[in-house]
């Protein structure tokens, strides 16, 4: 059942440019995928490590700016991508060393501050970043001689990166390291007593999160062929955090659903509803009220509840229906 759904959705994703018709919607598809990678990257921290970062747009922007500057200084795309990811991981390491001095609110505040510093540099170091006028790049890469200029090809390239991200993050969260990371979230003291180096586990998780954030940043740069401080601002960090929380933290599917929700509301619904901000806000409020754990776990809970109603004999077997622990998906 689960395999069938997975196969069907894979086929649907892979063939999207063929049946959706208009290249505008293909581009929306690319945006959903690249923001899903961003949200999945952030979810490593928010969901699995229990560390809420409000500065991830800073890492996202560092990748995009590093890539743009490398390309504009004559580097080829392969070198630019490597350089951008290396810069992002290095920046993530610095972020992590500073932010991991605290947890909870302290962590949030430090990440906000660091994110704002990156924004300030992007905005004010005009000789490098061109200030709020931003940096434009003129080309997209041509892997294996295949041009990514047209919408479907770019979509497929993004889809490949997206599937890679989902697979790697799924393996990561199922691995012993992923389990120990969840352990540091739920029982840090016990984990310390068991001999785990909590700080190191969180640090590595931060780097892993930063890597995927950087990948999303490069995709954003190639998609827009433009980067400016707005993409680095606090609002951008908050938006991706909303994607993670509304979709469901600590799940693999949640950030993807959250990214789709926000991108579709922002870009598609805004063409029909003038007060789309209001509608998006109302949806978030509804999610918080009816499914505080997020859309994906919330819907799973509703589905279980409905099944239980349909098949009453199941509840008869065990008097107190203990809530099943969340599975990975």
């Amino acid at each position: 059942m689960k395999r069938l759904a997975l196969a069907l959705s894979l086929v649907a994703l892979a063939t999207l440019p063929l049946w959706v018709g208009n290249s505008y919607y293909v581009n929306i598809g690319s945006q959903i995928l690249l923001y899903a990678i961003f949200a999945l990257g952030l979810n490593v921290l928010v969901g699995y490590a229990g560390l809420v970062s409000l500065g991830h747009a800073g890492l996202f922007g560092i990748a995009a700016y590093a890539g743009a500057l490398a390309i504009n200084h004559g580097a080829n795309h392969f070198v630019a991508i490597i350089a951008a990811l290396a810069a992002t991981i290095a920046a993530a390491a610095v972020f992590a060393v500073l932010a991991l001095r605290g947890t909870g609110l302290g962590f949030v505040m430090i990440t906000v501050a660091i994110g704002q510093i990156v924004w300030g540099v992007a905005y004010r170091w005009i000789s490098i970043t061109n200030g709020d006028n931003g940096v434009a790049i003129t080309t997209r890469p041509r892997p294996f001689g295949l041009s990514l200029t047209d919408a479907p090809n770019f979509y497929w390239a993004t889809l490949i990166v997206f599937l890679l991200a989902v697979t790697v993050i799924a393996i990561f969260s199922a691995s012993p390291f992923g389990a120990s990371l969840r352990g540091t979230r739920d029982q840090p003291r016990r984990m310390t007593a068991l001999g785990y180096h909590i700080w190191l586990i969180r640090f590595l998780a931060f780097l892993f999160s930063g890597l995927w954030t950087g990948v999303a940043g490069m995709l954003f740069l190639y998609y827009n062929q433009f980067i400016s401080p707005q993409a680095v601002a606090l609002g951008a960090s908050a938006e991706v955090l909303l994607m993670v929380i509304s979709g469901g933290t600590g799940t693999l599917l949640g950030p993807i659903v959250g990214a789709a929700l926000v991108v579709i509301m922002k870009n598609v619904a805004s063409a029909y509803i003038e007060r789309w901000n209001f509608v998006l806000g109302a949806i978030f409020v509804a999610i918080v009220i009816f499914m505080p754990e997020g859309i994906v776990p919330g819907l799973a809970r509703l589905a279980r509840w409905c099944l239980a109603k349909l098949r009453p004999q199941v509840t008869e077997v065990s008097g107190a229906a203990a809530p099943r622990p969340e599975s990975g998906l």
Binding site: Y24, N27, F220, N224, N267
Partner: peptide, 13 residues
């Protein structure tokens, strides 16, 4: 800027 790009694509494509 990203919103402007998406909306320009919407209008044109």
């Amino acid at each position: 800027p990203a919103g402007a790009k998406t909306k320009a694509q919407e209008l044109i494509e």
